[in-house]
Write a protein that binds this DNA or RNA. Structure first.
Lengths: 463, 463
DNA sequence: GGGTATTTGTCCGTATGTATG
DNA sequence: TCATACATACGGACAAATACC
């Protein structure tokens, strides 16, 4: 029985939250154990169900408990599936995973929390998609992607990201890499593309691989330098305004407008906005997409479901300005869609039934809990490290104030069994004196407990 | 997304109110449409729930929206007349389907018989793939494709097509177009590629689209002219030895050896063997693949499941010679797989459980029946038409002996309600006096009865 | 074994109290 | 005093999982 004091300044839900949290921490409650349902508890304590629920939600957002719809709330398994880590891919010709060694905590940048994926929902939708009267699903589909799915994506982008889009402007494709490649076909190879000097290595390799000239542009605190962009002679600029990878910089409105002005000054100039992880933002008012701020149709918007649903779902989308639509149709309209029509329809159902929004909300809460745990754990490092790129996405950026070399930081962490990642592999062109003592910590796959463990080890490694 | 300005003198709730009011007035929101719940919106905009509620209350009091307890807020249905003429017919942007008119029989070249697809098997395998203990299926997979699937494809190719292949040489990708594109990245753009003068238009567009120089090579009865190839200066040759599209030519062993010899004469020379419909062969011994005849590793083999299973299954495979493997890893190894890992595993199960072989055997019998019906029906045309490309694939080639123009043949057929397709769209370069009176008849989707009906109508149209 | 009542998490609109200019 | 914004608390409706008949 939880003792409640109605006259206490501490709200009821917090008293409940505190009580249960203490029980979990002290070990009185074992992992996997079921909590009383919100109704039962509320009934028992003679309070509103919502109050108990708020308490549970708090516990949930901090990772102490987990919820299973229609079943109950359960104490979280501390390190349930640690070391489940991805596949070693039988005979993997070149697995991207480095060897595990005795790595205890891996702050991997591509790690995601797939445990919470609404598996049953997905399975059910799949089942319903593969019904007998749906055989035409196996025939060839629209090369641009199923119209319904494009509508759903368009609606989502409009409401969530302020993107202005008709379904006709959307092209569905199998992941970012393919879409970059496709984009390169549309824009033409004889382009000069400006990229932020630390950027997605993959994007850089695709664009340079197809023969585009790539101009690295240095960044200030607000992102890509507009001045340098102007001078570079590029006619395309690839940017990530919402949460730049890897620096985590959020481009403020002023810089956005400068870039839009730059694009507007040339007939053939375009901005590519890669909104790769904009789904996750934990603090501060969300800034609409660059595309949404642009009435002139100079922004090509690109996004994917790899982070927001699962990497295995190889689906991404391109939003083309009206002017480029004709070019797309001429140059690439004959490309068959790269995504199975069945998968497109599963995803479509997932979206129109509202599962996508729900899933995003849930994941946002979960990742926020991890994010908070990480920042809390990094507090002790603040004297020697600058922490940036927080409050959004799935990684943070740490820079050693004393200028300790990146390799040393990585190596020191490694000796303590912690894997962190240097920023230098994202550099296109070396910049003397910059990006030399910066490491990246991804927290998507780790549990709050693992994160706390990791930061403790980092403390020992670096201080 | 509603743009909010925290520093504006206009209160937050009023900004929201204004925004939604404008959307309703402009007709962007339809009557009856549901607004996001106060919680969701507040969560999204990172403001208090009460603020969104105040905005909604204002809208409510002005009659723009209605509230339904426990369900949500809805746009009021004052004027149903707003914005009736929206959306331009789903998928109509540029659907590949020509208008139906009063076409009775369509000898479509991309038609397939999907009625016989083992739907239940596929569904069952899908269900079994999506079981709870298979969650890792949603994580990122091998960029080259699931190893198991590559093994299965390799085994199939070895036994069915005589392809010599280790799973390590196989790259799984989302359909032919993507694989061609990938191949172009691997080989490099500064290549000169020889293509048979009538060939897959799509392949031509991909290769020329990425900037490769394309050399059209004329064909004799045995396929691509080895002499002309030698003279062309090309270092890559794209061929379809098993059943050339569209001519249906089967390349005899002698010509194959000439091509192999050509490839062997240059360090960087390669043959691309597109085995697009080799699954279907109705008479005579199946000829092994070109790749299987080549001990020197000069043949790149490419195939897909689009015809043999279903076009919606966007899966194809590339078999790279050992020498190109390293190049692939370096230049394109970072490309994530374009096929959903789940789909790959479904396909894998489909193959290892023997369903693929069974399905192929069944389809071969079915298509043979159609093929026979077509040839039987065309007998009466034999006096005036030469019939070629038979005994394999899913189409035959008809050439008018009298030299009647292709357009006329198509038009005459059309007037009788039959759709046939001219060969000229497969021409890369006009060849005076050739391919001017030839049409193609695909029979994949038609039933034997429809085929008989079609040939009867063609008789009336042409004789 | 197949329908049915119950339980449960989840989402919803609503009401009231409070802090800050 | 009032407008604005936020925090706390309430109970109904719903669909899905589950247990029971």
């Amino acid at each position: 029985m939880i003792p409640l004091d109605g006259r206490s300044p501490q709200p009821l839900y917090e008293q409940i939250y505190q009580y249960i949290k203490d029980e979990i921490r002290s070990g009185k409650r074992r992992a996997g154990e079921r909590l009383p349902s919100t109704r039962m508890l509320a009934n028992h304590l003679k309070i509103s169900r919502c109050t108990t629920q708020m308490a549970y939600e708090q516990l949930l957002s901090e990772g102490y408990i987990e919820s299973v719809p229609c079943k109950g709330y359960f104490i979280a398994g501390i390190e349930e599936l640690v070391g489940l880590d991805q596949e070693p891919a039988p005979g993997a010709v070149f697995s991207r995973e480095e060897e595990k060694e005795d790595c205890q905590v891996d702050f991997s940048l591509r790690g995601l929390d797939l445990e919470r994926f609404p598996f049953n929902t997905w399975r059910k939708i799949t089942k319903n998609t593969l019904v007998d009267d749906n055989k035409e699903m196996f025939a060839a589909g629209d090369p641009q992607g199923e119209y319904g799915l494009r509508e759903a994506v368009g609606n989502y982008l409009h409401s969530a990201r302020g993107v202005h889009v008709r379904p006709e402007q959307i092209v569905i494709g199998a992941g970012s890499e393919y879409l970059w490649l496709l984009l390169a076909q549309i824009l033409g190879r004889n382009r000069c593309i400006a990229m932020e000097n630390t950027t997605y290595r993959q994007a850089f390799r695709v664009f340079s691989g197809v023969g585009m000239r790539v101009e690295p542009i240095s960044m200030d605190a607000n992102g890509m330098s507009a001045l340098e962009l102007e001078k570079s002679g590029a006619d395309i600029a690839y940017v990530m305004p919402a949460h730049q990878f890897p620096t985590g910089i959020v481009m403020p409105v002023k810089r956005r407008q400068e870039l839009l002005a730059w694009a507007g000054a040339g007939q053939e100039r375009y901005l590519i906005e890669d909104d790769y992880d904009s789904e996750f933002r934990y603090k501060g008012k969300p800034i609409p997409s660059l595309q949404g701020m642009d009435p002139a149709g100079k922004v090509i918007y690109i996004g994917t479901f790899s982070k927001s649903i699962a990497p295995a779902i190889r689906v991404g989308y391109l939003v083309l300005p009206e002017k480029l639509l004709a070019v797309y149709r001429e140059k690439a309209g004959f490309y068959a869609s790269t995504v199975s029509r069945i998968d497109q329809n599963i995803l479509y159902q997932f979206m129109v039934q509202g599962h996508y929004e729900r899933h995003l909300n849930r994941m946002r809460a979960i990742y926020k809990a991890k994010h908070d745990a990480l920042l809390e754990g990094l507090k002790s490092l603040e004297s020697q490290f600058e922490i940036r790129g927080e409050n959004a996405g799935l990684h943070v950026v740490l820079t050693h104030k004393g200028g300790r070399a990146e390799e040393e930081l990585v190596e020191q962490a490694k000796r303590m069994g912690v894997r962190v990642y240097g920023i230098s592999r994202s550099l296109i062109r070396p910049e003397p004196g910059r990006f030399t003592s910066t490491v990246l910590l991804g927290y998507g796959r780790l549990s709050p407990d693992e994160i706390r463990k990791g930061t403790k080890l980092l403390e020992q490694a670096w201080l």
